[in-house]
Design a binder for these strands. Structure first.
Length: 393
DNA sequence: CGTGCCGGGGC
DNA sequence: GCCCCGGCACG
């Protein structure tokens, strides 16, 4: 318990310092975080590095008196060697450069917070975190990521993130898809988007957005393969923004209970926040139009494979608000079309009886498809001059 | 003007 | 509930 808590606290600091993108790993196995720390990088003892650098910020979280491995001179050498290898174009040693950056906590948080809304896939992960916290306890906001207020959810997120980076934690069903790991010594941050990682490196490690260092970011991160790349695509609801946790969290957690939930429930710290986090994610799934959804840039990598009718439509999906007795074909059309639009457009939660009319969709309706002369083949809604159910926008 | 569909009404 | 239609907004 003590060891776990201490390490979790350290990790939380790391997360709070560098942004919330790590959130995407919150579902990983948290119970393995103890052994993770030394294996993170390709031969680099990141945890030791991070711990040493953050000691000043973390004195409270280390109150349990757990000894953290001090950074040996060999590891410093390793860092430098690795830096030299990876960063062939860099002249100054990042090992020297990194520690002061830890002290820039407010600035870092600010920049990371600024990334919340404009980044791509990493952005909405961050948003998830932001939307998650206030619900269980409305007073919990971004301030909680400051080192003085560590919450349990923060502990878990980072703990799980660390666990996911461990090779043997692959069996954990993480939310990660394509992931990018920061190779900067002492960092090891993993983000889900390349853009986010570049920005992370540029801002945190390269010290600002100088154009000169623009291309160098590529040297500081590596792509981390994740087996979830295969599991994510067949999501029956390829919504662009929420698809990530729609496919991974809701669908899988409900169908295979105890698989992903195990980390939360088994961990001694998971009593309050993570479970509610989980619940909220699930709840948002039941709202076809979650207002927290951030519109994802069209170019962001989405893993929504549009599946033709009757292909992978077996899992009972969330009932839409407009539930009627519709045919199977209409149902899959609703699932494939309606959620995508409503979520990416972040519709108001109280849609339905608002007087706004949706813009005319480009989808063909029963009238166009069948013609007026075959009106009996229209869906009932079209026959009644209601919103078409067979070909929703 | 054709179309989609909301709101309302009849049964 | 089902069914229809006036009327409006949109393209």
């Amino acid at each position: 318990m003590a060891a776990v808590r201490s390490r979790a606290g350290l990790n939380t600091i790391q997360m709070g310092t560098e942004g919330q993108e790590g959130m995407s790993y919150m579902q990983c196995c948290g119970q393995e975080g103890v052994s993770v720390q030394k294996k993170l990088g390709p031969g680099i003892e990141w945890s030791a590095d991070v711990s040493a650098q953050q000691t000043n910020l973390l004195s409270f979280s280390r109150s349990s008196g757990v000894d953290l491995p001090y950074r040996s001179p060999e590891s410093v050498e390793m860092d430098e060697i690795m830096a030299a290898m990876v960063l062939t174009s860099l002249s100054c040693s990042p090992v020297v450069q990194s520690p002061p950056q830890r002290d820039l906590l407010p600035a870092d948080m600010e920049c990371c917070g600024g990334e919340l809304s404009d980044s791509g896939s990493s952005g909405y992960w961050s948003w998830d975190h932001g939307s998650v916290s206030p619900a269980p306890s409305p007073s919990v906001t971004e301030m909680d990521r400051s080192p003085g207020q560590l919450t349990d959810e923060g502990l878990h997120m980072e703990l799980d993130q660390a666990a996911c980076e461990e090779p043997e934690a692959r069996r954990c069903k993480s939310l990660s898809r394509g992931a990018y790991r920061c190779l900067w010594p002492g960092c090891g941050k993993v983000l889900t988007s390349r853009v986010g990682m570049k920005r992370h490196i540029r801002i945190l490690h390269l010290g600002g957005g100088s154009e000169q260092s623009h291309r160098e970011e590529d040297f500081y991160y590596t792509e981390v393969s994740s087996e979830d790349e295969e599991t994510a695509p067949p999501s029956p609801a390829p919504s662009f923004s929420s698809g990530a946790w729609t496919s991974c969290s809701s669908t899988q957690s409900q169908s295979t209970p105890g698989h992903q939930d195990a980390p939360f429930q088994s961990s001694p710290l998971s009593q309050s926040a993570p479970s509610s986090v989980w619940q909220i994610h699930t709840e948002h799934l039941y709202q076809a139009c979650a207002p927290i959804q951030v519109t994802v840039s069209p170019g962001s990598p989405t893993f929504c494979s549009w599946t033709p009718p009757g292909d992978v439509q077996q899992k009972p999906q969330i009932p839409t608000s407009r539930s009627r007795s519709v045919s199977v074909g209409e149902q899959w059309l609703q699932r494939n079309s309606a959620p995508t639009r409503s979520q990416t457009m972040s519709a108001s939660p109280s849609r339905g009886h608002c007087s706004f009319r949706k813009g005319r969709g480009e989808a063909k309706k029963c009238r166009k498809v069948y013609g007026v002369e075959r009106r009996d083949q229209w869906c009932t809604a079209c026959r009644w001059k209601k919103a078409c159910q067979r070909f929703p926008d």
